[in-house]
Simulated assay, not measured.
Amino acid sequence: MSKSKAAAVATPPVFVPDWGDKPCPKPVLPAASAAQTAALMDGVRMRENPAEWAFVRLSKLIEDFEKGLDKDEEIGARIVGLPGDGTMSIEDLGFWGPDFIMFLGKNADGKPVRLIQHYQQINVLLDVRKKPEEREARRIGFQLSEMVAKTNPK
């Protein structure tokens, strides 16, 4: 292989900076206490994969949002571009690097939906909705945190 081809293969694309061991930047939330900020950052390291990096931070924000819900409430989302009222119940979150974030859940009619967004296009308004009477409220934040921990760089 020529020297120029070897350099091209070894060089990451421009959109994937080499963060190495760089710590996560602190979130800036005006009303957050130092303890809340520390909880959001707990165990989070920056990722080279932009979709994974967005997933990690979304997971932490969802977990933090769920802490304020009562036993009869669960997380939902209002997402620009969804049909109808643009709301969905979020049941899971995933990513497919380097660029897709996936929201999985149900629409207002209870039908399955999967929203696939480019990590640079994410605009999600987390909202609260009453859980169905027949079951306990779901919490996905801790499951997402487990996934983040499994993919956390050492």
Rank of each mutant, 00 (worst) to 15 (best):
L29C: 07
L61D: 15
L93P: 02
I116S: 01
Q36D: 13
N107D: 15
Q120T: 15
A32R: 08
A77G: 12
L104R: 15
A35V: 15
R139T: 09
P83W: 00
E74G: 05
W53A: 10
D85T: 14
D92Y: 11
K154C: 04
F95S: 06
L61S: 12
E133R: 00
A149Q: 12
I79D: 05
E133G: 01
S4Q: 07
P112A: 04
V113N: 06
A32V: 09
R139K: 10
I75H: 05
P17A: 02
Q36K: 12
D109L: 07
T11P: 00
R57V: 08
M41G: 07
V128L: 07
L40T: 08
P27F: 05
K106P: 07
V113W: 09
D127T: 15
V124A: 04
I101T: 06
M88E: 10
V56P: 02
I62E: 12
D109V: 05
K111R: 14
D85K: 11
A54W: 02
L61V: 14
A54V: 06
D99K: 11
T151P: 08
A149P: 02
A10E: 03
E146N: 13
R47K: 12
R78D: 12
A77M: 10
S2Y: 01
A8E: 01
K60C: 08
D92C: 02
A149E: 13
G94P: 01
N123E: 14
G141A: 02
S89W: 12
G86I: 11
G141F: 06
A108G: 09
Q36C: 02
I90W: 07
G20L: 03
V28F: 11
G81M: 08
A34I: 02
K22G: 06
D109A: 14
D18A: 07
L82D: 07
E63N: 14
V44T: 11
P27L: 08
E136C: 05
L93M: 09
R138Y: 04
S33A: 00
F95V: 06
K60A: 07
Y119V: 06
D64T: 10
V80A: 15
V44R: 14
R135C: 09
L125S: 14
E48V: 01
P112C: 07
A32I: 00
Q143R: 11
D18F: 00
Y119F: 13
K67M: 06
S59G: 08
N123F: 02
